[in-house]
Simulated scan of single mutants.
Amino acid sequence: MKVLTEENLPLKEETVCTIGNFDGFHKGHRFILDRVIESSKRQGKSSLVITFEPHPKTVLSSGEKPCRITGLETKIDLLEDEGIDYLYIINFSREFARKDPEEFIKFLTEKLRCRTLIVGHDWKFGHQGKGDVQTAKQIGRKYGLKVEVIPPVKEEDKRISSTQIRNLLKKGKVEEVARYLGRDYCIKGKVEQGNRIGSQIGFPTINIKPPEDLCLKKGVYSGLVKLNGQLLPAVINYGNRPTVDGRETVLEAHIIGKKLSFKPEEVKIFFKKFIRDEKRFSDIDQLKNQIKADIQKAMKSLEVLK
């Protein structure tokens, strides 16, 4: 998959495209992406996803802003796994938000060469969200754009939504989240140098910087770490490490039963089950004993122990 910049525009080839935040990257999103790929292959065109960074509501909302389900790096990785050809990231700003619906459709067709646009039934676009799927169809006829509308995707008779997934993540319900995503909840990131306290107490960790304002409940989880194509069992901590310093929010994973002989550049962390809340311990020995107990619980939940 190629991430496009302004220098790549206008595209040479025609595309089948979709547009959205894709924050949850849930089953509903993946259904749309499957249709984009299927339609692009059938038409002999390239598949294109257009997304925003940052989330439009963080720019436009004067009230509470939505927490993040998926950071940009993870989103790019998931789109690549789906088999999308191109990704175009719009730097969302108040200026961009002032584009009227026709201006936006013109941009899609002339710069991104989109000939078929596939979106959800409730898609809105243009200044103050004045454009909807009917507007897009009407303007699209003028610019040679066909618009295909996808109905809501449901799980157990409930419409799947990013709002629903945010609420579950805030409660640490990653097992339930996996049902709506159609995959394990995961975060990908570049490995950072930690303060090596884990190594000093016998539990070395791989540390990545979590996306800002992540929806995930702070605490300890069982899960898997993907390294060089291999999935390794792990106990994961997301939080502020109150026993150690309590200042910085970190995401760290201790690989169970394996000592790494190298420092990976990036990893993907999969969350399987919430184990316990974040807690401050009176001393390091108490923390070490708790980590041992966390590892045992993680191993049982991952069925490492038979």
Rank of each mutant, 00 (worst) to 15 (best):
K268P: 11
P210L: 05
I50S: 01
P204S: 05
D132R: 01
S222D: 13
T135H: 02
T18H: 14
I118G: 10
G202R: 02
G257P: 10
N207P: 13
P211S: 05
K218R: 12
L260R: 10
K268T: 14
V220D: 01
Q193H: 15
I89Q: 13
Y86T: 04
Y143D: 03
V235M: 07
E148V: 15
E212T: 12
L224E: 11
F125W: 01
E175C: 05
H254Q: 01
Q134F: 03
E102V: 05
R141H: 09
K226F: 10
E13T: 07
F31T: 11
P264G: 12
T5H: 14
G198K: 00
E103H: 01
I236F: 05
T5F: 10
K209W: 00
S39K: 15
I139D: 12
K279W: 04
E102Y: 03
H26A: 14
E7D: 13
L216D: 00
V225N: 07
S199K: 07
E192Q: 01
I84H: 10
I84E: 10
H26I: 06
T249D: 06
E73D: 14
E252W: 09
K188C: 11
I291Y: 14
L305F: 04
A97M: 08
S261A: 09
F274L: 01
A253H: 02
K300Q: 14
P152E: 04
K297A: 15
K65M: 13
H55D: 13
V119D: 12
S282E: 15
T74F: 03
R94S: 01
F125I: 03
S261L: 08
E155W: 15
F107H: 15
K288L: 09
H29I: 05
I118F: 07
D34C: 04
K217Y: 07
G126F: 00
G239S: 00
R159W: 03
K297R: 15
E156I: 00
D213T: 12
E103L: 00
Q296V: 05
F203V: 05
